[in-house]
Write a protein that binds this DNA or RNA. Structure first.
Lengths: 412, 412
DNA sequence: GGCAAATAATTCAATCGCTGAACAAATACC
DNA sequence: GGTATTTGTTCAGCGATTGAATTATTTGCC
């Protein structure tokens, strides 16, 4: 729900420094080893004099720090390496999901510095109560972060549903939420983060979107365009194009669960027919594997499926193959449309990837014209559970890296 | 997450002026009536002094000219309106299609200043010969443009196929081309355009992409995110997101014709099964309408279909309804995935839109969860035939508007 | 007709940030 | 120990923006 498309405003005198601060800081963040000022000068095209001045600002604002000189061969004065500061601004990530609440803190380097998970069935809980509990957890997280020298500069909340531009949760079907005004509800609690120019105090976003952002910023750096699919009860996708999340016109992109894979097939609760969710959603797989009667809680169904598949259970294997095939049909369509070369299976799919990937790849190979020239990679997510919370916190931290001027203006 | 269209490289001292030139020129291009310098100052946030200086550069470079003062009420010195110059740089658009060659010239304002179409069946013609003919047509176009005070600064070639980054046409199935090195073949002819820094002399792109760009820049301005579908023998789509064409990782996005709509359905020449093209491609519609025996040339099949449908022919109506339904299934998937609110039917579909739109909309309404909150518009393209050539020429002209500094450096 | 108000556009000294070259610092190699 | 080499800093110069003052041109009012 954040403004991805800031109006291309005037380039003022001061913008020059703002842009170069972001440029240099971004290079430091993207480098695989601590770059020197001279490295940055050659990499960015700025002069060493300018880089020195910019770096001085960044050091003064505690956004970067000098590290031990990187080992180097040859003569010359040794360089001083520059790394992102491990003390300074950090992002707060919040997540409300069907069966847990999660809070985490991520620093500029992308490290998770704090993580709390509270497992509970959230469906019977009123939104206000769930958020109140989340705020309580966040307060503890903030104190912990402060102890580690971190300042929370913004929060992002992940929700398994459709979110409006202003943070209104229109519909989170599996959670039972509809039209929940999250910002208003959170405003009743004391503020969790320090206000920093250019960083919204709170953004609310779809969990699939934030999990995709987490994947984008995970180490080691992966591709800048990919499809991240979160397979839970519903199936959501985060679409990352050229290093930026594509949210769609209204912010409701990624509803891959309702791609028609059998147009005259099973009716779906969305009103359509033959939606992917009916063939590759968690309930569909569990049911096809003959586990329906077990009434497993949502968070263990996936693990149980993986166990059975590991043990060679025929029903489970067949169910996973069918789900993978349906998923592959949908993914093949997406790849044909968007020409992506990487598909990441996240959420519940991550643990099932060994059985889902082969049929997905088979469908891609059969249906994607260009697959012969440039193969498509399908792999599980590198982030574990609560990927959305980590991605949410990371998205805040990345915003500081993308717009350091706001933070610097604050701290003087 | 990304900021504005921040320049990837260093922001140097001179970049300031470059960026503001583009900013001001872009505003002039986007305005619906000629803005004054004062209007531009308030719109951009720059000071009037800066705007005056920037505009002086633009006037000197013949990119804009002063128009009659716009009518205004109230006291005060009358403003001088600024409009894009009708003499100056212009783009050359080239198109090779199955049954015609097209060349056109588009100026900065988006007006088509020259247009030549040569109808012929290009399938039996060798690529080099087709391109040679195109060059001949382009030479005449350049002379005509020069007479009108226009300077061609770049060319774009539209091809119905997959194009590599370096202009190699990997595969144009309906044209019978494969691995055609277009830039090398064109290099054997004298150059068609004047070299301008920042503007490639020749780009080669998929016709669906360029037609979508044409739609993006058509007057009056439409939405900045939409799906443009070119329905010919094959079905291609151009995806415009936030005012920019999305080309995909390899530049092969938009292969909507191979989205699976009936996963176990008719085999497709792509190797897959149940691709949209088998249900909504021109041949499929013609065949379903009982016109197969007629062996109509490709360029009249669509017109004949429209005639029959207009006359109430039951077979034609049924064929169009079925094609529209298949198209709707595919489009519903795309809308679910990308959250677009506008779908433009172009190419052969434009003439058939009265019969295709209703079933497409019906499928969208049935299958898109968010359609209830924000309706999706499906409409025919505003550009007529040879939309890709016009879009190609326009894309060159647009590049001057986006990067005026190169042109200004040239003309002094 | 004359004057004041209003709006548009230009002029100009001041300032900000980048540039390029010279210089200082620190190390490896001979 | 001397020299070459690379890093980082200092500083005068310069281009572009800024903001205020100034000029230009019209409407509205007396």
């Amino acid at each position: 729900m954040s403004l991805t498309h800031a109006p291309a405003g005037a380039v003022r005198q001061g913008s020059l420094r703002e842009l170069n601060l972001a440029l240099v800081l971004g290079r430091i963040a993207a480098a695989d080893r601590p770059p020197s000022r001279a490295d940055l000068a050659t990499a960015t095209g700025l002069t060493r004099a300018t880089v020195s001045a910019v770096v001085e600002d960044l050091l003064g604002g505690r956004l970067v720090s000098e590290s031990d000189p990187a080992p180097r061969s040859g003569a010359g004065r040794p360089a001083r390496g520059l790394v992102l500061a491990e003390q300074g601004p950090a992002g707060l990530g919040l997540e409300v999901n069907v069966d847990y609440l999660a809070v985490c803190v991520v620093d500029l380097t992308g490290q998770v510095r704090h993580r709390t998970v509270h497992r509970a069935d959230l469906r019977p809980v009123a939104p206000a109560d769930a958020l109140a509990h989340l705020v309580e957890m966040a307060g503890a997280a903030r104190d912990d972060a402060a102890h580690q020298g971190l300042t929370l500069v913004g929060a992002a909340l992940a929700v398994p549903g459709l979110v409006d531009d202003d943070g209104l949760v229109r519909l989170a079907p599996n959670l039972g939420w509809s039209d929940v005004p999250v910002p208003a509800l959170l405003a009743e609690h004391p503020p969790l983060v320090e206000q920093v120019p250019g960083v919204p105090a709170l953004t609310v976003d779809n969990e699939a979107n934030l999990a995709a952002l987490g994947e984008l910023h995970s180490q080691p750096p992966g591709p800048s365009s990919f499809l991240h699919i979160s397979g839970e009860v519903g199936i959501g996708a985060g679409i990352v194009l050229d290093g930026a999340l594509f949210r769609g016109v209204r912010g409701w992109s990624g509803e891959i669960g309702h791609l028609p894979v059998h147009p005259e097939g099973r009716p779906c609760r969305c009103g359509g027919q033959g939606c992917l969710e009916q063939y590759a959603g968690q309930e569909a797989i569990v049911s096809a594997a003959g586990l329906a009667r077990a009434e497993l809680p949502a968070d263990t169904a996936t693990a149980r499926l993986a166990e059975l598949a590991e043990a060679g259970d025929a029903d489970a294997l067949r169910a996973l193959h069918e789900a993978g095939t349906a998923l592959g049909v949908a993914v093949a369509g997406v790849v044909n449309l968007l020409d992506l070369d990487t598909v990441v299976l996240g959420g519940g799919y991550a643990a099932l990837a060994p059985w889902l990937c082969p049929p997905v790849l088979a469908e891609i190979d059969a249906r994607v014209l260009t697959a012969a020239w440039s193969p498509v990679t399908v792999r599980p997510s590198t982030l574990g559970a609560e990927a959305a919370a980590v991605g949410a916190a990371g998205s805040v931290a990345r915003r500081i890296i993308a717009q350091p001027a706001g933070w610097l203006a604050r701290s003087g």
